[in-house]
Write a protein that binds this DNA or RNA. Structure first.
Lengths: 300, 300
DNA sequence: ATAATGTCTTTTATCGTGAAAAAACATTTT
DNA sequence: AAAATGTTTTTTCACGATAAAAGACATTAT
């Protein structure tokens, strides 16, 4: 099996959702941009839609014949890229009990366990290494550094440096910058979420990421912007793992964000600094409190 | 050709240099640690040394029969790892004329040009991406962001944040920390180099790297320590490329380092901050002045 | 009994290969 | 002539295979 066609399957599923909304589909290049795939893939999708009687396809004419049924969709798990599959497996292992710092990581074993080729695992590990959780020994195995307290402290130290600087840069942006409209929109979303926090608290983490990325982008520094990937990854898995007090935590965070947004809009550097610090402090506390005291780094 | 034996060849060459110093070689495990390779490789080395009449090998006894001759060494170029070869080729292209921002990078073409498999090129590009000079388009090619003025400014911005913080942490280290002895040793090396700067100015960049890495390590933050890899890489190639005023630049930098070292030893935060800022400012100037004004990023 | 050597097994590094997906080129339609 | 469709070529992604190198185990020497 040389390469899975998950790009096609995922785009097909997304295309099915478009069918509900229109009588006929747009041109091939347009569909390509819409779905984020090449025309080659678009044509495979159209071919199958024709075969299964979803559309009538003749050159420019792509008329919708019937609405999509559940069985038209490809199963969710077939739409994931290999990288996603490997990442999930790896993180499950990493966050599971028994993943102690200093432990060695075996490419071949990982590949066999997940059921993929070694190349994909190697490439994943190289990409993953920038998160600072693993390290390669030259000509030899990888070493797990572990999701320790030290890691969390080092991560938050950088995060705080970067975000304070980005927030200051944000507040100094000219009145006519497009970011103020983005911020307004995020503020509305925050207020809506705050109003229905009892039922929608689990939607917070997605909003959180969008909010912080907007701020980091104001730094206009690729290293700062890219570093948010590390934070996002950690928070993503961290929240999957630690559901304790989730609702209350998010409720507090939403309010902190609203205060932070107000400070940014005031454009007063002092207020921005205070609001940013306050939020970062509680974010750090949340992360730290979730790491068992016992998980300590092994002495090198 | 599945894998080159450069590890063996490089270790063999290094082992030859040991022959000059002793009558007989130590045990296999000891040699392994000394050369940084496994016993398997050590035994291949010993086998060849026996074959070529360099040593008499019988179990624990490894007597040196004759000093190594130039023709005993493997050619330098055969001792480089594939990753090094690819990196050099890639950087040559990147720094050559015509490597404009926005240009797309073709894995297959690169692999063919260098004469290696695509897997190795892919892995290199993934590793290299953390330097912020290239970026991957999902399911498609890599895009060159280019060694532009913007890149240099973003890089130095982070460097300055990190180094100021590390220097402050360094100065606050307890009297009995081992770093003070390291610093003393580096100071001596700086004074020696300063005395013979006319002839040895080209040895500065290696000393520079060791000095800054020592300071960064005081941060005890893996992200800060790792970031120095980005700086080191850029400076490494930058200095190969831009030899203008090298001697004078290095002469100034050595003096700035000595002032910086004195400030650290004073343990006065104000003095440290001043000396560090001064040096970083001139380092930034040097880097910026070497980037042609014309090299601008393409609009996205 | 400890540490070395000798032997065998496992893992890593790299390639060539083939299908999926993108991209380029040619042709037709509006 | 601009933009779509139809067709062909190129590139990316992922695999299994193989030699180099590491590592584990068994044996021998001090």
């Amino acid at each position: 099996m040389s390469k899975s066609n998950n790009v096609y399957k995922d785009a097909f599923n997304r295309c099915l959702r478009l069918l509900d909304e229109t009588r006929s589909l747009p041109s091939e290049p347009e569909l390509g941009t819409l779905l984020g795939v090449s025309r080659t893939t678009v044509r495979s999708i159209l071919a199958r839609m024709e075969e299964t009687g979803l559309i009538a396809w003749n050159k420019r004419d792509k008329t919708v014949l019937r609405p999509p049924r559940p069985q038209d969709f490809f199963p969710e798990e077939e739409t994931d890229s290999l990288a996603e599959i490997i990442e999930r497996s790896f993180m499950r292992r990493l966050l599971a009990e028994g993943a102690e710092a200093g432990m060695q990581i075996n490419e071949l074993e990982l590949a066999r366990e997940i059921g993929v080729g070694t190349t994909s695992v190697r490439e994943f590990l190289i990409r993953f290494s920038r998160f600072g959780l693993i390290e390669k020994r030259r000509n030899s195995h990888w070493v797990l550094k572990g999701f320790t307290r030290a890691f969390a402290l080092e991560l938050t130290e950088i995060r705080e440096m970067f975000e304070l600087r980005s927030a200051a840069a944000f507040a100094a942006l000219p009145e006519d910058s497009a970011v103020w409209a983005d911020l307004d929109r995020l503020e509305v979303e925050h207020r809506q979420l705050a109003g229905e926090i009892a039922t929608r608290f689990n939607e917070f983490s997605e909003l959180d990421e969008r909010f912080h990325r907007l701020i980091h982008r104001a730094s206009h520094n690729r290293f700062i912007v890219d570093f948010y990937d590390v934070i996002a990854m950690i928070f993503h898995y961290h929240y999957q793992w630690n559901k304790a007090e989730e609702r209350q935590r998010n409720e507090v965070a939403v309010q902190e964000h609203l205060a932070y947004i107000a400070a940014l809009k005031s454009r007063d550097p002092g207020k921005v600094d205070t609001a940013c610090r306050k939020h970062l402090k509680s974010a750090r506390q949340t992360l730290l409190s979730s790491i068992p005291e016992g998980r300590q780094a092994q002495p090198a």
